[in-house]
Simulated assay, not measured.
Amino acid sequence: MRLDFNACPRSHLDRDRVTYNHRKEVNGDDGRPTFLEAYFAGCQVLVTEDDFYELAMEYLAHCAEMNVRYCEPFFDTQAHTQRGIPAPTVLNGFLRAQQEGTKKYGVKSKWVFCFLRDRPLSEGLDAYEAARPWADLPDGSGLALFHAVGLAANEFERPPMLFEEAFRRAKKDGLHVTMHCDVDQKDAADHVHEAIFQVCDGRGTERIDHGLNVLDRPELIPGLKERDIGLTLCPHAYHRRQATEVLFPKIKTLIDKGVKLCINSDDPTYMHDVWIDGNMQKVYTYCDLEKKDIVQLARNAVDMCWADEDIKSELMNELNELRS
């Protein structure tokens, strides 16, 4: 199952006090920090290789507590290199945690390297080249920390096609491609359209992170289904901004239309400490699902992930037993 990676130690903040100005560029500046401003401020405490290692180990330990067997954490190096932290410090800390997390907690992981979309493409390409020795390359020459690339950070007026060169370079290296298409961002449906039909000539995107705005245009859901593109939804992230009676009928509509989707967490320490178990519970409750539906969502997660086939087969066998 895919879980988003958070870049700040886990905390238990009062729900009523955790509020952000979701999009300053859209909503105006009301004095509150945006989510991304809070997120990147939290990154300042990450300095040494041990910092990145300990952060990742805490994350994997919490995964184990929730009975997560496999995850695909998102990370980037640009937020740290621009602070003067060498990329190998980040990458080696995470690699050590990836390896030890499997041994200590039984949680296997392959990671997703992100380009920061509010930074220049050239900077992202340089970051990718610096990180490439840590990739899971087909010829076995890489260190196999990450096996996919994606997009992160502020997507305001930064559509996916701005990063076409980066996606093509990663695909040439045999890596998978996903990208955030945030919910109700400016031009959200246009971003989803680009992700489905244009990235790498319509053959690049394998998953879309979020992407709830596929409901906004009639050609988007057929495009997803024809290309077998799945959505990784994070319900609590949207529930902070959308009413229950608005949000969950949308998710139920996608399920009923046969869109392949799975449920995930999105930076949980910044979002009321709601992890994947809380997100699954919300969908189960507010979409009025049955237990078999939750099992199917978990099966979707296994199907959509990029784990090795032996891992996917093992997880599917467990889920088949639950279904019976």
Rank of each mutant, 00 (worst) to 15 (best):
A144I: 00
A144M: 01
L145M: 09
L145V: 07
L145T: 04
F146V: 03
A148Q: 11
A148H: 03
V149G: 00
A153S: 15
R158E: 13
P160H: 07
M161P: 00
M161G: 00
L162Y: 13
L162K: 13
E164Q: 15
E164N: 13
A166H: 11
A166D: 05
A170N: 05
K171Y: 11
D173S: 10
G174A: 08
G174I: 11
L175D: 05
V177N: 01
V177W: 02
T178I: 10
H180C: 04
C181W: 09
C181P: 02
V183N: 13
D184W: 08
K186M: 11
K186P: 00
A188M: 03
A189R: 04
D190C: 06
D190H: 12
H191Q: 13
H191P: 00
E194S: 07
E194P: 00
E194V: 02
A195K: 01
I196N: 01
I196W: 01
F197G: 00
F197Q: 01
V199L: 11
G202A: 06
G202Q: 06
G204Q: 04
G204L: 04
T205F: 02
I208P: 00
D209L: 08
D209M: 02
H210M: 06
H210K: 07
L212A: 08
N213I: 01
N213M: 02
L215E: 12
L220S: 02
I221S: 08
I221D: 08
I221M: 09
P222D: 11
P222A: 08
L224S: 07
K225R: 14
E226M: 12
E226K: 15
E226W: 10
D228K: 15
G230Y: 10
L231C: 07
T232S: 12
C234S: 12
H236I: 06
H236E: 11
H239T: 10
A243T: 10
T244F: 04
